[in-house]
């Protein structure tokens, strides 16, 4: 900005001095320094926030996770089902377990239930009509 100031070799006119006008040119250095300081502070703030986020160990949360997954909030009763997830998981887990295990259906008739993987092997041997028509 200094080239906009008028460098007057002969100095300020007497009437300017008398009228109290500014005599010195604008100084650019403090201006640049303060801009640099502001940006340095911004960078510093960014670093501090990043460090804090890492230190706390909890990342900034995705706004799509509106619901706390770990502890679902349950409204006050009466409730039809306190935690609807439990029954669903129980049913699926029981069925999956059953489908992966051996056991008797009827010991007298010699009927067993077997894991589905084994059953698929057997079906490949016996064809699609293992019980006849």
């Amino acid at each position: 900005m200094s080239h906009h100031g008028h460098e007057l070799a002969e100095g300020a006119a007497a009437e300017s001095v008398a009228a109290g006008y500014e005599l010195a040119d604008v100084r650019a250095r403090p201006l640049w320094i303060s801009i640099a300081v502001i940006f340095a502070l911004l960078a510093f703030a960014y670093v501090v926030i990043t460090v804090l986020v890492f230190a706390v160990g909890e990342p900034l949360r995705d706004p799509t996770y509106a619901v706390d997954v770990t502890s679902p909030q349950v409204p006050v009763g009466p409730l039809v089902e306190a935690n609807p997830n439990v029954d669903g998981r129980r049913i699926v887990n029981e069925a999956t377990e059953h489908l992966e295990s051996y056991g008797w259906v009827s010991q007298r008739q010699g009927i067993v239930h077997i894991p589905i993987e084994r059953s698929m092997e057997l079906l490949l041997e016996q064809g699609v009509n293992p019980f006849g028509q």
């Binding site: 489908l99 259906v105 010699g110 009927i111 067993v112 239930h113 077997i114 894991p115 589905i116 084994r118 059953s119 698929m120 057997l122 079906l123 016996q126 699609v128 009509n129 293992p130 019980f131």
Partner: peptide
């Protein structure tokens, strides 16, 4: 059919 066989297999 595989499911049925898995629950009703001949020992």
């Amino acid at each position: 059919r595989a499911l049925q066989l898995s629950q009703y297999a001949d020992v």
